[in-house]
């Protein structure tokens, strides 16, 4: 399992590549948390496009990161899941805490759209 991060402003895209099981989940978890802390990331996008295998350990990784991100008011988005990874995530009710997106570009647009709305609101308030 390989992991790659992409940053845009307060959004971090986590690109996962390979097989996500209990063995790799602890490393993945640590790497993501370290990177969130280093870059003061607010929003997280999980990109599963290149994940060829995932068992229920992936659910734990997502739930844990949601707890971290949501404390700071951040959003968690998930994209690129195969039909069967989707089934596992649905079983665990992950889509009640995370938003399922078609692709990374839409995910960024959704978060930025929210930011603009909030920005407009605070301008009005002033």
């Amino acid at each position: 399992m390989q992991i790659e991060f992409e940053m845009t402003d307060d959004i971090m895209i986590v690109n996962l590549d390979g097989e996500l099981d209990h063995h790799y989940s602890s490393v993945i978890r640590e790497e993501i948390d370290k990177t969130i802390d280093t870059f003061h990331t607010k929003h997280l996008i999980f990109n599963f496009e290149k994940v060829s295998f995932m068992d229920s350990s992936g659910i734990g990784v997502i739930m844990g990161r949601y707890n971290k991100i949501s404390q700071l008011g951040g959003k968690l988005l998930i994209t690129g899941c195969s039909e069967y990874i989707d089934r596992i995530l649905e079983m665990a009710g992950i889509y009640t805490i995370a938003t399922r997106m078609k692709n990374v570009a839409d995910s960024i647009a959704l978060i930025e759209g929210d930011n603009i709305e909030k920005g407009a609101k605070s301008e009005n308030e002033q």
């Binding site: 978890r29 068992d55 229920s56 350990s57 659910i59 734990g60 990784v61 739930m63 844990g64 596992i88 079983m91 665990a92």
Partner: peptide, 10 residues
């Protein structure tokens, strides 16, 4: 330990 508790369900 961030276990999902979904093993048997899966």
């Amino acid at each position: 330990e961030e276990r999902s508790g979904m093993g048997f369900t899966v």
